[in-house]
Amino acid sequence: MVREPAVAGAFYDARAATLAAEVDGWLSAGAAPAPALAVMVPHAGYVYSGAVAGATFARVALPARVIVLGPNHTGLGHAGAALWPAGAWRTPLGSVPVDPELTAALAAAPGVAADRLAHLREHSLEVEVPFLQRARPDVALAALCLGPLSFAACEALGTAVGAAARAAGALVVASSDMSHYLPAAEARRRDLRALDRLLALDAEGLYDVVRREGITMCGIVPATVMLVAARALGATGAELVRYAHSGEVSGDDDAVVGYAGVVVR
């Protein structure tokens, strides 16, 4: 049961050697890695967000087991928390095994259902996998694709994710972009409102400000679940590694997408 790449050649290079060199370059540009409990990284095409994701992963001494949480952009499959059930995830760099024990622990969490359909065309988890492969070649993962959950559902799931991560010594990875298609200054203003709550480790405050102010942060549910899990793991602080937007690459500041990389320790 292999999850084949859906966006290789579109969001990132489909040539293994080129992809490895690009990812290695971004990973080598960061500070010395240190243990962490969780991260939030963007999931756009690498030309736009690869440097932010790489700088963030570079700050982390990646463990051998990772839980990846991403939003469901396609609307396919289970509307709650869709769990890839077994097998491996393939990229042009090779295959990453699905961790059976970690996946079984998540399968028992509230609102989780084994479902491949939600994952088949979804890019938000796939684009993180090459970074995991290059940072830790022996990495294994468990993958949840998340629909539009209430805060109460995020809290229940995050508690279970935290327990599973603690038992496995796993890093929790939330995949999210920030504001979409706003002028650069307005996107930054709105994004900093959300990031203020995220850096305060305030899961409910993050969820509420994004909903109340209409901040188009597509991975609000994964980020909220990640924060709940991190607090359950004993998190004491978070660091904004880098903030950027698509206009820095395209030259168009009139309608940008924001990207942020955060490490929680």
Rank of each mutant, 00 (worst) to 15 (best):
V2T: 15
R3H: 04
E4V: 09
E4N: 03
P5W: 04
A6H: 11
A6V: 06
A6T: 07
V7K: 02
A10E: 12
Y12G: 01
D13Q: 10
A16P: 12
A20S: 14
E22W: 10
V23G: 01
S28M: 00
P35R: 04
L37T: 09
P42M: 10
A44F: 02
V47L: 14
Y48K: 01
S49Q: 05
A55N: 07
T56R: 03
F57G: 03
A58G: 02
A58N: 02
V60F: 01
A61I: 00
V66Y: 08
V66H: 01
L69F: 04
P71W: 02
H73T: 04
T74K: 07
L76G: 05
A79I: 09
G80N: 02
A81R: 10
P85E: 03
P85L: 04
R90K: 13
R90H: 10
R90P: 06
L93R: 06
L93P: 04
P97H: 05
D99R: 05
P100T: 13
E101A: 15
L106S: 02
A107E: 14
A107W: 02
V112N: 03
V112R: 02
R116Q: 09
L117M: 07
L117G: 00
A118F: 03
H119K: 02
L120K: 02
E122V: 01
E122S: 03
H123L: 00
V127H: 01
E128S: 09
F131K: 02
R136E: 00
P137D: 02
V139C: 00
V139T: 05
A140L: 00
A140N: 00
A140R: 08
A142G: 08
A142E: 01
A143G: 12
A143V: 13
L144I: 05
C145Q: 13
C145G: 03
G147N: 05
G147A: 10
P148K: 13
S150W: 09
S150P: 12
F151P: 13
A152G: 14
C154I: 14
C154F: 09
E155A: 15
E155G: 09
G158R: 11
A160R: 08
A160V: 14
A163F: 03
A165L: 14
A167D: 15
A168H: 13
G169A: 02
G169M: 11
V172G: 10
A174H: 05
S179D: 08
H180M: 03
P183L: 09
A187Y: 10
R188Q: 15
L192A: 08
D196L: 12
L198A: 15
A200T: 13
L201S: 10
A203L: 12
L206N: 09
L206K: 06
V209I: 15
G214K: 15
G214D: 14
T216N: 13
M217D: 07
V221L: 01
V221E: 09
V221F: 08
A223H: 10
A223Y: 07
T224R: 08
T224G: 10
V225R: 06
A229V: 11
A229F: 14
A232Y: 05
G237S: 14
E239C: 00
L240F: 09
L240A: 12
R242A: 14
R242W: 05
A244G: 03
A244I: 04
H245S: 01
S246M: 06
E248W: 00
S250F: 02
S250R: 01
G251E: 08
D253Q: 11
D254T: 15
A255R: 14
G261C: 06
V262T: 12
V262K: 06
V264L: 07
V264T: 10
